[in-house]
């Protein structure tokens, strides 16, 4: 009892600007095993959406888990999710729990 149950939530970020506008740190085999949001750029899609916060850890992108992926691979997955024309949004599964 008293232990916080790690909760995650799904955030849908519409591609409302030409950039996503987040900086991420972390990935497999580093001190930060899952990518964490360290910056949100004003005027980017993430800032416009208003639901992503600095410090949140990204568990999944469009349903694809980032667990066990190196930093560059995780970054590439997010970049491709933003570039693809198939969807006009990106779904992030995030948690405050680090």
């Amino acid at each position: 009892p008293g232990l916080l149950e790690p909760t995650s939530c799904l955030v849908r970020v519409p591609k409302s600007a030409s950039t996503l506008g987040i900086a991420i740190e972390g990935g497999a085999n580093t001190r930060q095993p899952l990518p964490r949001i360290v910056t949100i750029q004003r005027g980017g899609s993430a800032h416009n959406c208003g639901q992503l916060k600095v410090g949140q850890v990204i568990l999944e992108v469009n349903g694809v888990s980032l667990r066990g992926r190196e930093h560059r691979e995780a970054a590439r997955l997010i970049a491709e999710a933003f570039k693809t024309k198939e969807k006009d949004y990106i779904d992030f599964l995030v948690t405050e729990f680090n």
Binding site: T30, V38, H71, R72
Partner: peptide, 15 residues
């Protein structure tokens, strides 16, 4: 003595 596993810091990527 506690064996400390030191992992490297990660790089930061702006997306």
């Amino acid at each position: 003595r506690e064996k400390r596993l030191t992992l490297p810091p990660s790089e930061i990527t702006l997306l």
